[in-house]
Amino acid sequence: MNHKIKEWLIILFGLLALVIAVGLLSLSIGSAGIPLKQIPQILLKGGDTAEYSILMGIRLPRILLAISIGGSLSLAGTLLQGMFRNPLVEPYTLGISGGASLGVCINILFKFYVVIGVIAFPLSGFIGASLVIFLVYNLNRKDQNVQSNRMLLTGVMISYVASSLVMLLMALSGSDDLQNIVLWIMGSLDEPNTALIKISCMGSLGALLISYIFCMDLNALTLGDDEAANLGINTTRTKKILFIIASFLTGLSVSIAGIIMFVGLIVPHFVRMLTGPDHRILLGASFLAGAAFLTLSDIIARMIIAPLELPVGVITGIIGGVMFIWALSRKQVTL
């Protein structure tokens, strides 16, 4: 065990260092060119300088959001893949992101956010995501053997239905709402609302901690529901709680940053290659790797056509889509 823990700690610290490095890089990149070397000096001086305001008021919140959302999506993917024993499952392919986006659109259109405040965004995303996950699960519960493949297909179909409904809502909405929906759907990590950033950071870290309670259950679930139950796991209860966590993480991410595809697919996939299938390391490592990946994708999105910026979902979508096809074409993918 000692040997294993040592190895895991090295991986975790390595990934943490990567997140910090990518974060620092992101901090130094932007239209107001602030060299990396000067950043400590500016931060230490503090106060009224324009550079300080840019770093602390614009760039740092954006990085924190990228870290929490990248971590959330990757963690959600890891939890879902562990539960369904299928490496192609993630919030997007299961239609959960679609459900969350429909929830947020309804929120924008019916102006729930005016009544209950900014919390309406993550809340509506969470409700939409939860409804889809329970629908997908219950539609495929009967036939255990083809469960995960059928579930993927159902998820893709639900994604289509959800995006069609989003388009329907857009067609029915007035020009102000339409603009709000379009801006939100395009997805961005540029979130001016600090309350939402705080919710995102605390929510994702909280979900990571809670999901750790179930890391051994997830290890047992890798062997299948029956064997996990025979090892003493209350599989029904565990799955329900993990569904709620995955919906929460997806709802949170989609409601704040729009649809960001495939982070939950490719990051856990590659982290599993590095760490093996043990969820005791996989959960934390996926969170950190997801955080680093999205922060890096955001840097690329900001640089590629600077001074304009691309929606970060475009970058993750292209990288993720290619990886998805590659993963599908591999002969045997096991967890």
Binding site: R85, T222, L223, E227, P277, T334
Partner: peptide
């Protein structure tokens, strides 16, 4: 059981 899931563990 008859078989165990050939996981990567």
């Amino acid at each position: 059981m008859q078989t165990i899931n050939p996981a990567a563990m």
